[in-house]
Computed example of a mutant assay.
Amino acid sequence: MNIANKLTILRVILIPVFLIFLLTDFSTHNNIYALIIFAVASFTDFLDGYLARSLNLVTNFGKFMDPLADKLLVSSALISFVYLEWLAPWVVIVIISREFIISGFRVVAASDGLVIAASYWGKIKTVFQMVMIIVLMANFSGTTIYYIEQILIYLAVIFTVISAIDYMVKNQHVFTEGSK
């Protein structure tokens, strides 16, 4: 197992730790700890991709597991945000629906021996989602921050939809013709 794949696994391991701090109140600094853990986990996404490409460590495991780790991290945060009433449910439904759709594409493609790696739009979507989550967790106050949060939420949703359309258009052959 190479370093890039180990970082991906670390990201998955950090999810329950992140959730414990986000959803409990055994410390007055839980939100700060949750924010730091989420930021570290998000950074591992950048770092594992960079290392995999620059050191030629790209593997099928990484192509599959890296986007899955991102989905798990982001989805767990977003679902928690609905519970905490920090985010409207429709935002989470749009984002998670996209993840199910793309996962479906990946499963069908995998049954044909294909691995669908993350696209440019998928990476942009992930960055905006993670930045949005970090800003919401920072819990700054003020009118300006409120508008920045709203802009980030809408940008995350817009890039999520663009990414879904991009995957469906580029990979429609998976459903219409199979891998041939």
Rank of each mutant, 00 (worst) to 15 (best):
1 M>A: 05
73 L>C: 06
78 L>I: 06
168 M>P: 09
99 E>V: 00
175 F>M: 09
53 R>L: 13
90 W>N: 14
115 V>A: 12
71 K>A: 08
77 A>H: 05
123 K>L: 03
67 P>R: 00
35 L>K: 09
129 Q>M: 07
86 W>A: 15
71 K>D: 06
2 N>G: 05
63 K>M: 02
51 L>D: 10
39 A>H: 11
159 F>H: 00
97 S>M: 12
23 L>F: 09
96 I>A: 09
127 V>E: 14
114 L>F: 10
154 Y>K: 00
9 I>F: 06
122 G>M: 08
158 I>Q: 04
84 L>M: 14
27 S>I: 03
178 G>C: 00
58 V>A: 08
160 T>D: 08
159 F>P: 01
11 R>K: 02
150 Q>E: 09
85 E>C: 10
174 V>Q: 01
177 E>D: 12
172 Q>F: 12
115 V>W: 11
62 G>C: 05
4 A>H: 06
37 I>E: 14
12 V>D: 02
18 F>Q: 05
25 D>Q: 07
77 A>I: 09
132 M>F: 10
54 S>Q: 14
177 E>S: 11
38 F>C: 06
134 I>R: 08
105 F>M: 06
85 E>V: 11
99 E>A: 02
67 P>Q: 03
26 F>T: 03
120 Y>E: 15
58 V>S: 08
24 T>C: 06
113 G>Y: 00
179 S>Q: 02
13 I>V: 07
97 S>D: 13
147 Y>D: 07
4 A>V: 04
25 D>H: 06
42 S>M: 13
118 A>M: 03
20 I>A: 09
110 A>E: 11
155 L>F: 02
54 S>N: 14
163 S>C: 04
156 A>Q: 01
24 T>K: 01
126 T>Q: 10
46 F>A: 11
70 D>I: 02
165 I>T: 07
19 L>F: 12
147 Y>K: 05
175 F>P: 12
1 M>T: 04
167 Y>C: 02
145 I>E: 14
158 I>C: 04
17 V>S: 08
121 W>P: 15
34 A>L: 11
97 S>Q: 11
59 T>M: 01
112 D>T: 03
33 Y>K: 11
115 V>S: 12
131 V>Y: 06
37 I>W: 07
103 S>R: 03
171 N>P: 05
135 V>H: 09
127 V>C: 14
89 P>H: 14
177 E>M: 07
159 F>D: 00
32 I>W: 13
48 D>C: 04
85 E>Y: 12
10 L>Y: 07
62 G>N: 04
130 M>R: 09
40 V>I: 15
25 D>C: 03
15 I>Y: 01
89 P>G: 15
70 D>R: 01
103 S>V: 09
163 S>L: 02
114 L>E: 14
119 S>E: 15
67 P>H: 01
63 K>A: 06
54 S>T: 15
70 D>W: 00
90 W>V: 15
132 M>C: 14
130 M>T: 05
165 I>L: 13
47 L>I: 11
42 S>C: 13
74 V>N: 07
1 M>S: 06
88 A>N: 15
97 S>W: 10
52 A>H: 12
94 V>I: 15
11 R>F: 02
94 V>F: 15
133 I>Q: 03
15 I>Q: 02
150 Q>R: 04
72 L>S: 12
82 V>C: 10
75 S>E: 11
21 F>W: 07
172 Q>I: 09
157 V>M: 04
160 T>G: 10
45 D>K: 00
55 L>V: 08
114 L>D: 13
49 G>T: 04
153 I>F: 05
168 M>R: 04
51 L>K: 07
11 R>Q: 05
131 V>N: 08
